[in-house]
Design a protein around this nucleic acid. Sequence first.
DNA 1: CCTCCCATGTAAACTGTTACATGATTTT
DNA 2: AAAATCATGTAACAGTTTACATGGGAGG
Lengths: 203, 203
Amino acid sequence: MSLRNAILALLRIGPMSGYDLQKQFSQSVGHVWHAPDSQIYPELRKMADQGLLTAEEQARGASGMRKVYHVTEAGEREFLEWMNAPLKYQRTRDAAHLRAAYLEAADPEAIEEFLNGHIRHWQVELETVEEEICKIDTLTSPMLNRRLEVTEDEDREATIAFKRYSYEGLAARARGEIRWAREGLALIRQLGIADGVEDADPQ
Amino acid sequence: MSLRNAILALLRIGPMSGYDLQKQFSQSVGHVWHAPDSQIYPELRKMADQGLLTAEEQARGASGMRKVYHVTEAGEREFLEWMNAPLKYQRTRDAAHLRAAYLEAADPEAIEEFLNGHIRHWQVELETVEEEICKIDTLTSPMLNRRLEVTEDEDREATIAFKRYSYEGLAARARGEIRWAREGLALIRQLGIADGVEDADPQ
DNA sequence: CCTCCCATGTAAACTGTTACATGATTTT
DNA sequence: AAAATCATGTAACAGTTTACATGGGAGG
């Protein structure tokens, strides 16, 4: 049900087409909520049918078309209701920690590759999140700036602070995962599993 | 696809019925991979159909029945293949961080309740994970002990270490989330949003 | 006798992934 | 003229949740 709320959150910043939304979901917002285009377009239509959005049809060139979606009052209500309601936590489904618990069954090289892969994965995540934070701090984030344009002066500080706060949380998580994987590398060395041997025996 | 691997990981410890598995998925393993009974029973049957498991039917009382599942060689192969293959990371879908990014839209009490709820949620998680770690350290974890019974002496250290390592990662994550939510509480106080006012003005 | 635990499922709805499919417009 | 980007979707499948449904056995 949160794809809907993510869409509402974005459209509240300003009207957008499905394509614009899609880009957001594969960039900035994608860090907290991912959605592919095949999910976005049908959801937009459903939300419009339910009166949460209205579609403003725009011509594009000779025969091109573009639907720009606006949040209706009902949509605004639905979003605020969600924001003020207790959050439902999904049950964890964490393949990395599942695998980690049974790592003794894997080959030594696979163990090391798994841990290095974990580090790589979260390092990419960390870098992009840190870039977003930088954009927030330097006020060069397009979406945030667009939002700030229609925000009362006294609410700007909070708007910026919460966005930064959210991304700082993501960065902290990424750092935690990297730390954990590094501890894993230390552990396999300690257990004598690592093939650090190959370096220690040249010739 | 990891429900299947979680089931294989558990059944490799020892044969179990769907009911036994279900209990594991709502207790210990549930911390890394949750699955309801309605997902487990059909999956077991599918896996048996595909030759990854065999069902040993046991009578229970007069007409009661119980199917105990065993991992076949094909099942063992499938599990090891997964363990040695690169891990696929799911895209993040994180309602808490999504909400955090737009928290200025929520009522002050709702913001505080959201952050306190986050702390409560992860504190419960942390406590249960720490209990699991304690059981691992004192060798009072039933599943781990069952596994150790059929483990070669030289592999026991690693088996224990990896299980502990996995749970330590979960604990670290929980601590991180709690820390983040506490920072959030500090932030709203700093922004003057918190209704800590009610305490500061008694009468 | 009642309640809790053992034991196994089905059905419907919802959510998400992967692959396919098409065509216009803008930039190089 | 080709490539990138804009723009909108469909179809099939895989995974997950929620609710429903049933009945036996063990212990107080």
